[in-house]
Design a protein around this nucleic acid. Structure first.
Lengths: 341, 341
DNA sequence: CTGAAAGCGCTTACAG
DNA sequence: CTGAAAGCGCTTACAG
């Protein structure tokens, strides 16, 4: 099929017996152009459904108005709410967004960065893939175009980082458990110390310390990839202890849900015998029974904020690279799994 | 900060005392160029971290290698699995993907189409937003660049459409309920006849008819926006009937989960008293208790397939526009909510 | 095997 | 108020 090409400035100019420059200016509402000319041009442009070729103008002006986004997994619910925020803010600011999945694969992540550069994106937003060992490729990027990181970040990369108050959020969750009378609180975290897992663990430790509760290695469990089935397994481990915990804090909702499933199976009363708190406020937390207390992470706001800072850096380039951390506040949502013991 | 610009062909040419043409050819592995020259060029390019400016080359060749994707809601789980498939297949085929949300807003959808055109995407993938009244804007697009629709489609748009076997899937679900001994099967569908809702309803009707079961308007419920809370409400309505149904088929998982929640609340035994079947196989369907029987929609495959056809049309332009429907098979997943009565 | 030159569609400093 | 011309970075038909 002979796809109709978009009409160009040149063709409009010819039809109007004007120069390309004049047509271009008329369309951009340049003050130099007379009203009658503007009208004439704009009318014809409309009639022919003229759409400027952004590739040409972007190419000319060294600006593409495209932002690149790299996330580990697009179908992770929390990630998708961040993306929502990113899309919304970007579109409202006149930017378009190219999204890529790194699939938690470091090599893939580097490739993505590379192609994003090739496409001449104006800036990059990214969440680190799990187990990113080498940040060399990222450091190279940082020197070339603005980069803003979110969620999974690294303090070693000099750029703006938008994160939640991980440590404090965990602290509040543990304090809540203490307030409802719990004294022996287990934690399920990640083996490999990711930024997020470590911060949450720190919050856990601080809460226990500040409330003069003992820290017991036996109820500090770590797992490689934290998931529903791992949560279930860890719960079984905890149930088999001589001194069972009276609360379990899992650093992700899916693990917490696994915990609840295991407790339900063994008819352990939640929250009386063992309370459970998760992290994320994913949809599932209201589906499971009893409903899960969890930390609400405002993904939408994280996305919007990250875009805001990125565009700021694109439009006002700074002299030096600095690590700047923006913390987004979270809320603990108390549901049945930890409600008044 | 003085961001380092990418090095250009011109600069490479100058450094090597070669012409731009030669450098370009060497980099593209053109057979005309001698081995020593190629090596020399490629070595220097690598050293300077040369990345071709795809904007320039795309602009030159009228091809951007960017696909536009428009979906109603990115954080809908099923959608995100489709996007996963789209991203994967596109990237493997050398295309990048721009994603936009229409938010089920028709005006937004038209705007998105417009900007996608401006960005010179090579083709568009889209799922219709709910309640799209006018398809004029879409018909205009179809004449200009390849368009492939998926999931929420319209028979009125002449293009390739990738959908699941909606009617058959619903038929199979109902037949399964009949096979486990159910005779009075209710359905919860949408008021405004979306393509998907209508097809599923047709499957429901055909199954009842072919098994000589009566069709009773009282247990055919419709709701505006089908959601968990609406599912709950509809279940309450059904429970209040003199002649209760012995099974409920909800055309979405979220509604089905609402149904289960309501039944649990009234201590109705699932599936003995009332069996429940949903549609989508969302994560939630394994979290709810009892676990939900549901139709698995292979989102990943839908996404991959849609991209496959789109690229085919981009690379081999056809003379005429035809409506072509590709059906992806689904599987009924039987879980506790409808297991052996 | 290599180079000079045109051109993709647009913007903008310069000239009048 | 309008136009001619350069140039963004690349590819490619043409020439040698």
């Amino acid at each position: 099929m002979q796809k109709k090409r978009n009409i160009t400035l040149k063709e409009l100019a010819k039809a109007l017996e004007l120069s390309i420059s004049t047509v271009s200016r008329a369309l951009n509402n340049h003050p130099d152009i007379s009203e009658p000319t503007k009208e004439k041009v704009q009318k014809l442009a409309e009639k022919h459904n003229y759409v400027p070729n952004l590739f040409a103008s972007g190419f000319r002006s060294h600006r593409t108005h495209i932002l690149g986004v790299i996330v580990p997994n697009i179908s992770h619910y929390f990630t998708s709410t961040i993306l929502k925020g990113i899309l919304e803010k970007a579109e409202n600011s006149g930017y378009r967004v190219i999204i890529s999945e790194s699939k938690n694969d470091e090599k893939k992540q580097s490739e993505m960065l590379q192609t994003m550069m090739q496409f001449g994106v104006d800036g990059i937003l990214m969440a680190l893939s799990r187990r990113t060992k080498s940040i060399d490729d990222i450091l190279k990027i940082v020197n070339r175009i603005p980069l803003v990181m979110f969620d999974k970040v690294s303090g070693k990369i000099p750029c703006t980082q938008v994160v939640i108050n991980e440590e404090e959020a965990a602290y509040n969750a543990i304090e809540h458990l203490i307030n409802i009378g719990k004294r022996r609180i287990a934690i399920i975290k990640e083996t490999e110390g990711s930024f997020n897992s470590e911060k949450r663990f720190e919050g856990y430790l601080r809460a226990l310390r500040e409330h003069d509760l003992p820290i017991d290695e036996k109820i500090i469990l770590s797992t490689e990839d934290i998931s529903l089935s791992k949560g279930r397994m860890m719960a079984n481990v905890l149930l088999s202890l001589k001194k069972r915990p009276d609360a379990i804090f899992a650093i992700t909702d899916s693990a917490a849900i696994g915990v609840i499933k295991a407790l339900n199976k063994f008819k352990v009363n939640i929250p009386d015998e063992i309370a459970v708190v998760g992290f994320s406020n994913s949809v599932n937390s209201t589906i499971i029974s009893p409903s899960l207390s969890t930390v609400d992470q405002p993904g939408h706001q994280i996305g919007r904020t990250a875009v805001k800072y990125l565009i700021e850096e694109i439009e006002n380039p700074k002299e030096d690279l600095v690590t700047r951390t923006i913390e987004i506040k979270t809320n603990l949502i108390v549901r049945d799994s930890s409600f008044k013991v």
